[in-house]
Nucleic acid binder design. Sequence first.
DNA 1: CAGATGTCAGACCAACTGATATGC
DNA 2: CGCATATCAGTTCGTCTGACATCT
Lengths: 160, 160
Amino acid sequence: MDLPAPHAGSPEPSAAPTPTAGSMVLLTQLSRVVYRRSTEQLLGMRLKPYMALRYLRGTPACAQQALGESLMMDANNLVLLLNELEADGHVTRRRDAADRRRHIVALTASGERALERAEAGMNSVEDEVLRGLADDERATLRELLQRAVDGAGPDAPLPC
Amino acid sequence: MDLPAPHAGSPEPSAAPTPTAGSMVLLTQLSRVVYRRSTEQLLGMRLKPYMALRYLRGTPACAQQALGESLMMDANNLVLLLNELEADGHVTRRRDAADRRRHIVALTASGERALERAEAGMNSVEDEVLRGLADDERATLRELLQRAVDGAGPDAPLPC
DNA sequence: CAGATGTCAGACCAACTGATATGC
DNA sequence: CGCATATCAGTTCGTCTGACATCT
């Protein structure tokens, strides 16, 4: 019971050939499903802008750098993303008075509205992706994922 | 420089504004960590070839199509991947005698060796990524992911 | 013939690398 | 001056689209 062995004529998956490494494969496959289903049509935006907006709601005045770290995007890529979001009026960038090299990013009212819409779409994606799991199992999964994300970075802890 | 730690003192950044949609974000972020850590140097190959080889070990005589479905890759992309693997001597492609349109893909001894090496690397990746989880929690996570993949994958991967 | 399977080439998109400007 | 932050340009990578060949 290791690999998908999806349907029809698959022979018996037989003994467990790989007891451990499978989780990473499953994780990768599932995240691909999420990506494929998170269409612009459904969310009103792509997955990454959604994640950025979501972070910004939880962190009202956020340095650009911290955003990049949290989303595990490098600074270059983030610039492009923020350019788009700013052009759409979903975020604002202003200089940090204390350190004028920095930009402080903040969610606008428009961004908040867009986020709410996207969130509704993501809820439906989650519902499809986690269709095989009961509610309490979903909660468990969520908690385990959260703990894994919190603990995953060995060579790069950086609080802000 | 990867990781978050956005929240300061409290486990919950605020009064649970989004109890649900978060799982998909966490999943996406975690899978990014996995991808970043699954370097060619560590595995001896990339992540996708690894997943393909892994599936082939569990399904000795596999139609190319089934492989693509299981890995959620489209056929085009798969061709390129198999070309590489075949050039490296890790897999063989032969015509299916029963239906000569099909190719039967099989793992070679060389491929099996490469897979074992990659698996060792993936185990260490898993160990880093899941550092924050105890053994029984890892097992639970694994099972939940498996069930989610089983439930989400075959039924509605793509509208055609 | 229509439909399925696999192959390839070119377009397209997301990500990384390097160089530049500004401020500490 | 060296270091940090943000930006942009160019390149590279992975994926998707479309045309084609083979076979049932």
